[in-house]
Amino acid sequence: MARHEGRGMASVNYPIGMNLGGDPSQALIHSNPDGKFTVALSAIDLGQGMKQVSRQIAAETLGVPIEDVYVDTADSDTGPHDMGSFASRGTHRMGNAIIVAAREARGVLLEAAAEELEVNAADLVTDGRGNIHVRGAPSRSITVKATAQAAQFKQGKTIAGRGIFLIPLSAVDAETGEMNPNTAFAHACLVADVCVDDETGEVEVLRMTSAYELGRVINPRMVEQQLVGGAWMGISHALYETPEPYYPNPEHGPRDFNEYLMPGPGDIAPYHVTVLERPAPDGPFGGKGPGEMCANPVLPAIANAVYNAVGVRVDELPITPEKILRGLKANGGVKPGPRRGGPVNWR
């Protein structure tokens, strides 16, 4: 019996969103008489942080404090239309829609403030702390709250904005079938180091190291959080989760993660992520978003690492001990690949 270490790599070019039918998102923003803003969306936050990112994008564009923005994703029946939270599209698609809506709302806000201050709206700026003032003359100012109240009760204006982000559907070339369903690509590369036990077929992930390029990172802590959690999911898909075995028949198989295996808190490996930012020209403030690609490269990297460790190429997930042992038998034993260096040098 012996344990064999191996290293595998994988890289991913990940398309953000999917442009089937244009992949539109809408956002509506309005102010309340207390000078706070509500952003209505139909995309939901599953815990990935979309609400927070939406709030940041809206506050930044409106020029108001983040505390004064509320993001409402309550009801897709009554909210503006959205394709949904999938395909890692949240930050990019909804963020862009929010920027359009917030720009329009900001325009009305400044017009209302201009009317109160008796100046030209083009001369007004916001300080991001709840005030609007004449450029270069901070004393000639009015609060966002007073402006919202004047608009509501005196001027009869709605401080509101509508936003949609739509990429026109890409036509399919009749000759070649070629089309371009993508707008923004995010990129990553991941190295997995594993140890394979040739007697039990068990795979232990020793460490993982990755670099992710996600455009401008709008909320660094949430990006890190998603990347770490998603990598765990990748390990889970690669090595654990399956409704098999079907013994004695499929009805007895596990149906969900209460019944099948997932890595627990004792099975996690040290993971080092480096995030690179190359702002996307069409992203909200340059953002693309991590999403599904947090997990994607983990699977092929682990499969490659297993191959490197013992020479068994498993091409069906998950990579279970049973498959490894069958592979070892078919190969007539362990056939390790070339060793590639020592531990990855963490900064």
Binding site: G47, Q225, V228, G229, G230, A231, W232, M233, F257, N258, M262, G264, P265, G266, I268, Y271
Partner: peptide, 12 residues
């Protein structure tokens, strides 16, 4: 170890 988390990867 008796608590499942589907999101965080446990580390945090």
């Amino acid at each position: 170890s008796g608590n499942i988390c589907r999101c965080t990867g446990y580390e945090p």
